[in-house]
C-alpha cells in the first residue's frame, strides 16, 4: 500500500530531514509514527501527500510511483487519501455541513450523493445535530471530529493524521483516536504522527520511531520509547 525505498529529503544542500528511509505499510494497517520535533515525521507525511518530492529514493502508494507522477495527476491521487491536521484546517466562513460537503464538491460528486453522505459522515463522528454550526462555535475536539468527517467522507483508502490530538485535552484525544480506530476497522489504512505517549502506549499498535531523519525502531505492537 505505502512503500518508501531509500528515501532522502534535503531542504537545503547537505541537511537531510529524512535520510535513506525504508518503510512498508500494508493495506488496513494502523501505524503510529513517533519521535521528537525535527525527527522527520511531518516530512514523511508531506512526501506521502506528494506535497514534497524526495531528493532521492522511491515512494510508491497504492501502486503509483510518486516520483513519476505528473502535476495534473496529483488531485486524483490525493482523493484516495484523507488527511487530518493538528490545527483542524476547517474553512472558518462555512458551516460544518458545508465544510464536509466541500470535500465532496472538490471531487465533483453530485448534489444528490452529497446530501446523503455528509449527514452519514457527521453521524459517524457524533456531530449530526451540529451541522449548522460554524467552526468557531465548536470546541477543539468537535472541530477535529469535523476534520475527521471531512477526511473520511470520500471513503479514502489511506488516512493520514499529523498530530491529530496535539491541541486537545486527554478526553477529546481519546475520542479522536477512537474515531481513527473505527475508520481502520472499516478497512482504511491509518498513519498517525503523534507525540502522545499515553495513547501510543495504550493502543498497542505498530509504532515506527524516528530520530534525526532515520527510523530507529519499528515494532509490531510497540510503545513510545523515550530512550531512542
Amino acid at each position: 500500500m505505502i512503500e518508501l525505498k531509500e528515501v532522502t529529503k534535503e531542504y537545503s544542500k547537505g541537511i537531510a530531514a529524512l535520510n535513506g528511509i525504508n518503510l512498508k505499510i500494508a493495506q488496513g494497517e494502523f501505524v503510529f509514527i513517533v519521535g521528537d520535533s525535527g525527527s522527520g515525521k511531518s516530512t514523511l507525511i508531506r512526501l506521502i501527500m506528494k506535497e514534497l518530492d524526495p531528493t532521492s529514493g522511491t515512494i510508491v502508494v497504492n501502486g503509483q510511483n510518486l516520483n513519476r507522477m505528473k502535476h495534473r495527476k496529483i488531485p486524483m491521487y490525493r482523493r484516495g487519501i484523507g488527511v487530518v491536521f493538528q490545527d483542524f484546517r476547517l474553512l472558518k466562513d462555512r458551516n460544518i455541513y458545508e465544510n464536509i460537503a466541500f470535500a465532496q464538491r472538490v471531487t465533483e460528486t453530485s448534489s444528490r450523493i452529497i446530501k446523503k453522505k455528509v449527514p452519514a459522515a457527521l453521524s459517524l463522528v457524533g456531530l449530526a445535530q451540529k451541522y449548522k454550526a460554524y467552526p468557531k462555535e465548536l470546541s477543539g475536539g468537535e472541530q477535529q471530529r469535523v476534520a475527521i468527517a471531512r477526511a473520511i467522507v470520500n471513503e479514502p483508502a489511506i488516512l493520514l493524521a499529523d498530530e491529530p490530538t496535539g491541541n486537545l485535552d486527554p478526553t477529546n484525544s481519546w475520542e479522536i483516536m477512537k474515531l481513527l480506530e473505527e475508520a481502520n476497522d472499516r478497512g482504511t489504512t491509518v498513519l498517525v504522527v503523534t507525540h502522545n505517549q499515553e495513547i501510543v502506549n495504550e493502543m498497542k499498535k505498530r509504532v515506527v520511531t524516528m530520530k534525526k531523519g532515520v527510523i530507529v525502531s519499528d515494532e509490531k505492537k510497540g510503545g513510545y520509547n523515550n530512550e531512542n
Binding site: R78, R79, I81, R89, F102, V106
Partner: peptide
C-alpha cells in the same frame, strides 16, 4: 486545504 483534499 482545497489542494490537500484533491481539488484540481
Amino acid at each position: 486545504i482545497m489542494k490537500y483534499i484533491g481539488a484540481k
